[in-house]
Amino acid sequence: MNILVKANEIKELLITDNSSVNFVIENNGSLLLKYAMFLDSKNIDISGSLNKNSTLKTVVADFSNGVGKIHANIELNEEGANATWDLASLATNKDKKEFDISFIHNKNNTFANMNNYGVALNSSRLVFSGINHIKKNAKKSNTNQNAKIIVFDKDASGKANPILKIDENDVLASHAAIVGRLNDEHLFYLKSRGLTEIEAKALIVEGYLKPIANYFNDDIKESINNKIMEKCHV
């Protein structure tokens, strides 16, 4: 799907059929790109570029099933370009999900912020690879990346590879990545307060994944809640 956001235009797009997207946002344009994924996983490409003072907000709620890789490559081509990415992903059963997300700062005063949250249950695998690249001549740019995965079962795994590539001085950059494993102590603590094993797990999963629901309409919110419940109760 090709999308052109014209100068000064504001566009919002909700994608529920796992299709790939290629976009261009012209000067002062703004795109809100939302993915709600409940179907079978597949490979998705998200690519695009931002021009002067344009804004991109990407929100990805991934509750799909199976094997898939999402590849995103976003170029901040002109001054004042501002891009954010928020992802929540739930991997269950034998899912293998990979997210490969790059923000490339090509000009001065560009801004990017990436947040990836994930939960890996059963024998699934979840990988977040994020690259924030500040190129030469992109002074005073600001780039951040934050990844948080919690792994539940012993056969599940999670990996976060945050990469910052900085070719310019006078920039701000930060990254944080935590892969936590739910252990007996956490579960015991929650159970000792009266929560059953399922209630305890659901509480943790919700903590990681529910905030993403706020970006969506009531129907999708409900689907997200149902998915969390359904997948934790197995």
Binding site: K148, I150, G180, K191, R193, L195, T196, E197, I204
Partner: peptide
């Protein structure tokens, strides 16, 4: 189970309370 004991009225204040991620 532990949660049943809690609901029966037992409470344990731990020497080292867990930090539970994400909750």
């Amino acid at each position: 189970s532990t949660d049943e004991r809690s609901k029966l009225g037992l409470f344990l204040g731990l020497q080292n309370p867990s930090e539970v991620p994400g909750v």
